[in-house]
Design a protein around this nucleic acid. Sequence first.
DNA 1: CTACGAGTTCGAGCGCACTCTAAGTCAAGA
DNA 2: TCTTGACTTAGAGTGCGCTCGAACTCGTAG
Lengths: 142, 142
Amino acid sequence: MKIGELAKRSGLTAHTIRYYERIGLLPYADRDRSSRRDYDASILVWIEFLGRLKTTGMPIRDMLLYAELRDRGSGTEAERRALLERHRESVRAHVDELNACLLVLDTKIGGYAETEQRMKDYDATLPERRRKPVGARSPRTR
Amino acid sequence: MKIGELAKRSGLTAHTIRYYERIGLLPYADRDRSSRRDYDASILVWIEFLGRLKTTGMPIRDMLLYAELRDRGSGTEAERRALLERHRESVRAHVDELNACLLVLDTKIGGYAETEQRMKDYDATLPERRRKPVGARSPRTR
DNA sequence: CTACGAGTTCGAGCGCACTCTAAGTCAAGA
DNA sequence: TCTTGACTTAGAGTGCGCTCGAACTCGTAG
C-alpha cells in the first residue's frame, strides 16, 4: 500500500503520515525500488490505536514513549501497561470533569429557557397586536 | 481587587488575565488613579465559567462570540442559548468518544495483564531457582 | 530619600501538532 | 516520446493559547 492509499484508509494526510514517521510515531516504512513508502495493512491497527490515544488527549511525547517501549519489544510490557493505566486514569478524571461541566451547562441553558419563558409570558400580556417574534432568527453564526 | 489577588483567586496568571482582557474575553477593567486594574469579585464568576468552557474544549474564538453576545445584553439570549446548546452537544459527543476509547484501553490493558499472567505461569514452570522479578520496578517515568 | 514590590504597556517568543511549499524523481498511459 | 500525477526530501510556515521580557511607573515601608 502506497502512502496515498494509507492516507485514505487511515484518515491521516500523507503529510501527517510522513511527519509521524519523521518523529518516530510510525516505524520507518520500507521503500520500493523508487524509494516510495510501501505499507503493510497491519500499520492501520497501530494508526487507529494512536488515534485513540490522541482522541483521549495523550500528548505526542507520551505516544512516542509508548512506541519506543513497543519497539523494544518483550520485557517492556509492564511499563507499557503502567503507561496506559496512568493514561486511563487521566481520561477517566477528564470525563468526570466534563460531566461536571455538562451539569453546569445544563443549568445555564435552563436559565436561558426561563428567561425566554418570562419574555413569552410578558409578550402574552401585551395588547393584541402583531408582536415582534422572539428568538425567531436562526442562530447559525460562522 | 488588584490583578495579583485576582490571579491567586482565579488560578490564572496575571499575564493571562491581561491577555484575556486584550483579546476581549475579559471586560476592560477599571483602573485606579495609577492606572492599575481594580477588579470586582463578580469577575470571578465569569472567569470560572470561561474555565468550564475551556475545560470542555471550546476554542477561544467561540468564547469571544459568547462574550460579545453577553456584552450586547438583552436580545441575544436565544443566540447565547443556541451557542451553549451546540457546545453541549459537542461535549456530549466527545464524552461518548472518550468512553469508547476507555473500553479500548481496558481491553488493551487487559491484554497486558494476560501476557504478564502467561509470563508468571511460564516462570512457575521453571526449575526452582531465584527468578528475575517480573514488573517489580516502579513504572514512574517523567 | 530610597528601595522594593507590584503593577503598567508593548511586543516578541514558545510549545504543540501539524500543514504546506519547492524542487525534484519516477512509472505508466496516450 | 511526452505528459501526468503520485510520490520523494528538507525545511519553512501556521494557528492556537498562552508566556515571557524589557522598560517603565507607582505607592509604601524603612
